[in-house]
Design a protein around this nucleic acid. Structure first.
Length: 511
RNA sequence: UCCUCAAUAGCUCAGCUGGUUAGAGCGACUGACUGUUAAUCAGUAGGUCCCUGGUUCAAGUCCAGGUUGGGGAGCCA
């Protein structure tokens, strides 16, 4: 059987006052005696469709009334402009053909807990916000390829099975490779360097695996990473490229995903800043001074800012608690209609959840303050230190020249000050933390060998990597962008598990 | 691995200091309502109160251990 020609909701503006046929699912439904309002989604968008008893056969109208959430159907009708509706149009149904009346759909319009939603991820992906988020993800990926392809980078792929735990730092997933232990790649970078020596400018774009038992809102066990590597680039050129690249991606998404960002209720001020402001480049030493509150940024002090945040959160909690009391009193007053009582009860539920979130933050801030005040020069930044620091800036910042001890063996020493390596971390604003980590690479054979030995890594595993420093070594640099962290920041959501279709994290292998 | 919070109906939660037959809203179902946008009305069904053990005349409630999950630390993108 052939499927007849049909149109997509996204194309409605081309079909004003004309008849179209769409195929999709019931995303929401309301009905009264002679009318059924069906919010349809077809993958390309959402639109309200109206079934009017006066315009349909009794049989078809009854069918419309019987529809359940997520039932699949074909609708034919006239596209009518209506500013009040999502997308600006609605469909007045002339004919309706049900493919399946769906079973009771588990995801209701009410709020759900995170665990329930992740358990139902295969269905959750249909919800409006998740739909918007995946479209943002798609556009981010597209913009990344666009940027690199237009700048003469070649996309090349690094292997996923690796024979050794290459950077020696994080815990990896072990698998069996024809009887030999093999590890799922934690980074394609070392291979990227070999590829850059063949092609000049390359980028890899692939999955990455970390076996750490992290339980935070910014970690995944399996995520996607973009790792460009450029021959004849030093740290400054690297930072220039990173900034240009991030600006290009953000600009593209804000331009082509307006509707999606609106659905996500994203405040785009910080995104606009990322496009328009120059990213501050901060030496590690200065960053430490700022975190400890010894140095201000535009008159803003990290410790005072954080203390103020805490106060504001507590004030907000008090205000919300007052609102709950108010609504409870209203309900107790006995003058409200049942519908209004429900509305207020729902509102109270929502507020309670909000308070819970705020309370969690408020509980953490004192620890963060403590960590910031006592931060020791020479340490790596923790998640909270990043938050403390980035809180003071309106756009992403780049922290460069890190203490040798806290960074990977392959980073190049700063010849002017060998206590530091020429690495750079890009920290996103609004508490999203590290989205890019990069560095100029150690290009001197002896220095690199010494670092490998110093870290007690198996030298023979790095034979091929050392070869790159024997046969025409050149200064080179690169960086890694965490796709999901980028998507998360751009879309303004709270948990990284929402930034990937089927998240894998500690304790989560299904669906 | 550590700190911290939690687990009660399909979902979101209430259940105060232990006390008869465990509640609400949403959702589902039945019916009423001619334009709705999570705010109409009436009714119906729906429970292994996470598990094991303990204290007690009596445990959803207290205690111990465990399981699962949220948030954070460490590690990082």
């Amino acid at each position: 059987m052939r499927i007849e020609k049909f149109q997509y909701i996204r194309e409605f503006s081309q079909f004003e006052n004309r008849e179209v046929t769409i195929k999709g699912w019931v995303s929401n439904k309301r009905d009264s005696k002679g009318l059924v309002f069906i919010i349809m989604r077809d993958g390309s968008g959402f639109t309200q469709c109206v079934a009017d008893a006066a315009k349909l056969s009794a049989e078809q109208f009854e069918a419309a009334k019987r529809l359940t959430l997520e039932s699949s159907l074909t609708l034919t009708g006239t596209v009518v402009k209506d500013e009040r509706q999502i997308g600006g149009y609605e469909l007045q149904i002339t004919s309706l053909d049900i493919i399946q009346v769906a079973d009771e759909y588990p995801i209701s319009k009410k709020e759900h807990g995170v665990e329930f939603l992740v358990d139902n991820r295969h269905l959750w992906l249909r919800s409006k916000k998740q739909w918007a988020m995946m479209r943002v993800r798609n556009r981010v990926i597209f913009a990344i390829h666009n940027f690199f392809q237009q700048n003469d980078f070649l996309q090349m792929d690094a292997p996923i099975f690796t024979g050794n735990a290459c950077e020696g730092t994080s815990t990896l997933f072990e698998t069996d490779f024809y009887g030999r232990p093999a590890y799922l790649s934690q980074s394609g970078q070392l291979y990227g360097e070999a590829l850059a020596m063949a092609h000049g400018k390359i980028y890899t774009f692939g999955p990455t695996f970390r076996a750490e038992k992290s339980k935070t809102r910014r970690h995944l066990s399996e995520f996607w990473m973009i790792e460009p590597e450029m021959a004849f680039y030093d740290l400054d050129m690297n930072m220039d490229l990173i900034e240009q690249f991030l600006k290009a991606v953000v600009k593209d998404v804000t331009e082509f995903c307006k509707e999606e960002l609106e659905i996500l209720e994203r405040n785009t001020a910080f995104l606009e800043n990322a496009i328009n402001l120059k990213f501050p480049r901060i030496h590690y030493d200065d960053a430490v001074a700022i975190i400890r509150g010894e140095k201000d940024v535009d008159g803003k002090n990290s410790i005072l800012t954080l203390e103020n945040d805490l106060k504001e959160i507590n004030d907000k909690i008090t205000a919300l608690q007052n609102e709950i009391t108010e609504r409870e009193n209203k309900i107790a007053g006995g003058t409200l209609k049942a519908g209004e009582i429900n509305f207020n009860k729902n509102k109270i539920d929502t507020i309670k959840n909000e308070i819970k979130d705020l309370q969690e933050k408020a509980d953490n801030i004192p620890q963060w303050l403590n960590s910031a005040r006592n931060f020791e020069h020479g340490n790596d930044f923790g998640g909270s230190d990043e938050t403390v620091l980035t809180r003071l800036f309106a756009c992403p910042i780049m922290v460069y020249n890190w203490p040798t001890a806290v960074k990977a063996f392959y980073m190049k020493r700063d010849p002017n000050d060998p206590r530091y390596v020429k690495g750079v971390d890009v920290l996103a604003p609004e508490g999203y933390g590290e989205i890019v980590g990069g560095a100029e690479r150690e290009d001197n054979y002896e220095m690199l060998l010494e670092r490998i030995k110093h870290e007690e890594l198996p030298v023979e595993a790095f034979d091929w990597y050392l070869d790159l420093r024997k046969y025409g070594t050149v200064p080179h640099a690169g960086f890694g962008l965490g796709l999901e962290r980028m998507v998360l920041w751009i879309s303004g959501a709270t948990h990284i598990r929402e930034a990937i279709p089927f998240p894998r994290f500690y304790g989560r292998l299904e669906p």
